[in-house]
Design a protein around this nucleic acid. Structure first.
Lengths: 123, 123, 123, 123
DNA sequence: GTGGTCTAGACCACC
DNA sequence: GTGGTCTAGACCACA
């Protein structure tokens, strides 16, 4: 049996980087760790980090200055949210809908529970 | 770095068993593989399979006849759905709600997309 | 820790003998196995069997003919029931009452369940 | 001959734990011995204690805080009584009824003796 | 053969 | 340190 596989590493590192930025530990506009440093820190091959940084750069979450390093974008937080929204609508939501259908759960029940959730969490 | 953890084995096996039953490959009321056989098939210790079977028996999805073996319950499919609903409301839904909140996504947008999803999938 | 101890052996053998008589496998008035034979059969010291037979003879469930052997009494079944009644009232019933008290269970609930039990078992 | 079997160890330990709680030696809401400590005290493998604690946790008699230990539930006493009532009705009462039937004892006699018992014990 | 209990010991995550 | 998972292997009762 192949037990459930974990996500590919470079995407997990992408999440890790986004988390750092969202938490303000790596502030927008400022330099983030070098490919080599982050590779050492996460005990991962530098090439894997390069792939992560490439991925994030394509999404305008970070950018590079040649010979200097990588930087968090000024609007990194916005970009991360946008990226996550895309991911959410593209992959998570269909799975969610499929589950609703399979378990015969009505959307109205979700709405009711959401109201309760909002009241409980953010009051 | 600890990369994303995978679920514990005995619960993955529980999902595996439920899947078999849901697909009708292990019909309700009939005998399912012995702990030893399934252990060999999944390359897992029989004790781990026992733990899975114990877990499923407590949820009335399977039952045991001593000296004979384990059997899928007559209403196993119903019980599995009930179990999954519990799991859904207890763990998946809160994560979903948190995502909605963090990404500033409105429930009304979910509803619209759900209507589209239903039309696309089941018409 | 001393885990729960089992009853002394000679009394367990007494139960074994009574069972045989009640089931008609050792008919009233007829000879029952010798001390030695039963000792071999149960893998127990003959002295232990002697203690059992002594115990049962005092309760008129079996009797001995010197030089011949032990016999089940003609009214062995009656005597066994009488013996068990004594045991029941002396030891089991107080424990039962104590449990009722500790668990706040009312006798009327017992009566109701008894009616249900009788209907289910002996109809 | 197989002499009367003793209850499995992990359930005996469960009784032992319940007793401690009922007697107030392990007060509700407070930490109870670790699986390793209790294992040493009772000369039993820690895994067996884990099994006991698992069993009791499923019945909401104790609960766990990861990395800290197990605790007696606030309403542990209530839960224990509830658990014992279930056990009483499921296993002890049928045996009791069967005995009544086999010995031709009438329920009215039980009632009379119960009145006497109550007067003797709690007056 | 089946399930079920128990031991011994390794390794992990959490605090 | 704590609980929790998993393995390996022994032994038992039941059928």
């Amino acid at each position: 049996m192949h037990f459930r596989e974990t996500q590919v590493i470079y995407l997990q590192i992408a999440d890790y980087v986004c988390e750092k930025i969202l938490l303000g530990q790596w502030p927008p506009g400022e330099r983030i760790p070098s490919v080599r440093d982050l590779g050492v820190e996460l005990e991962v091959n530098p090439n894997t980090v390069i792939r992560t940084y490439d991925f994030l750069q394509q999404r305008a979450i970070i950018f590079t200055k040649r010979g200097i390093g990588y930087f968090a974008a000024d609007d990194a937080v916005t970009q991360i949210k946008s990226y996550r929204r895309d991911q959410f609508f593209a992959t998570e939501l269909p799975v969610f809908f499929r589950t609703l259908y399979l378990l015969n759960i009505d959307l109205t029940e979700i709405e009711q529970r959401y109201d309760a959730f909002v009241k409980a969490e953010f009051n």
